[in-house]
């Protein structure tokens, strides 16, 4: 038998490289598992197109030929098709991130694999990070393809405005999203329930992000709440970069700075909440009970 030695440090203490390796092993395992469910990618691409098609067609039905003109007056862009497609694509990324973390925890509770993970010395936050990276990569690719197909079907140019800045907003929006999903995952760990919370969350996220409308048309108090939600800044940043709807603080770098703040605060809050609830669960019924 070939001798294999564990690292020469206190057992259970891992180097950052080892933890990154464990995180990406989780991404790989998730991808392998989803690859065995055929049809998932098709579903992923279809959802944002169908989601965007509904308000686009409603707009055409109600405003007729003046749809673009009316939309321009309220939002700063006449490209309502692009507006909806970007909104629904980013919504799918955000929504999937919540779904994937909640389903990951819930599913693994039920199958017993969550306890298997807890028996290893890798902290669950890194396994959750792997699940988050898997989720956002899968959803971002799916949303991008859906955006391209949707643009072709609706007859708009998908590549307009400043694409680099739009990409920056997406990239910077994904990290606070991970922190929020971790916070949400902590609730699932405690309440042992995912579906009802996910259903409620879908509508709240949809509303706060302004998926189908600019949040400037919301009441002032609701706008304030929406601006506490990082994906709102991500969506508006992408729309502003590509369609010119206007940044909240006038300049792209100021809006991006707000996302940077969320990038630090949201993961810290998420990790704190996850660890806190995890300890509370271990103190009583344990993570395997569902």
């Amino acid at each position: 038998m070939t001798a294999i030695s564990l690292p020469a440090r206190k057992p259970g203490k891992a180097s950052p490289a080892t933890l990154v390796s464990a995180t990406f092993a989780t991404v790989r395992a998730r991808l392998l598992i989803v690859s065995r469910y055929k049809g998932q990618l098709f579903n992923e691409i279809l959802t944002p197109i169908v989601l965007a098609a509904m308000p686009i067609l409603l707009g055409r039905a109600t405003a007729g030929d003046r749809a673009a003109e009316v939309f321009l007056a309220n939002t700063g862009t006449a490209n309502y098709v692009g507006f909806m497609l970007i909104g629904s694509a980013t919504f799918v990324i955000v929504s999937n991130a919540f779904w994937h973390i909640a389903n990951w925890l819930r599913w693994e509770m039920e199958t017993g694999t969550l306890e298997s993970i807890y028996l290893t010395p890798t902290h669950r936050v890194f396994v959750a990070a792997g699940t988050g990276i898997y989720s956002t990569s899968r959803s971002t690719v799916g949303a991008f393809v859906a955006y391209l197909i949707g643009s072709a079907i609706m007859g708009i140019n998908p590549f307009q405005g400043d694409l680099l800045i739009a990409f920056l907003f997406i990239l910077c929006g994904l990290i606070p999203l991970f922190g929020m999903t971790l916070f949400y995952g902590a609730l699932v760990l405690k309440l042992k329930e995912a579906n009802a919370m996910l259903n409620l969350m879908q509508w709240v996220v949809n509303f706060l992000m302004g998926v189908f409308f600019p949040i400037t048309v919301m009441p002032a108090a609701a706008q304030l709440v929406a601006k506490l939600f990082p994906p709102t800044w991500m969506t508006n940043g992408v729309r502003s970069a590509m369609l010119g709807v206007g940044y909240f603080f006038g300049e792209w770098y100021l809006d991006l700075a707000v996302l940077w703040f969320f990038m630090l605060a949201a993961p810290m809050l998420g990790i704190w909440a996850f660890k806190k609830i995890e300890n509370s669960v271990r103190r009583n019924e344990g993570v395997g009970q569902f």
Partner: peptide, 14 residues
Amino acid sequence: ENLIYFGALYHYSP
């Protein structure tokens, strides 16, 4: 794949 994945969680190199 199961054994390899759990090997990663036990901090083995790839």
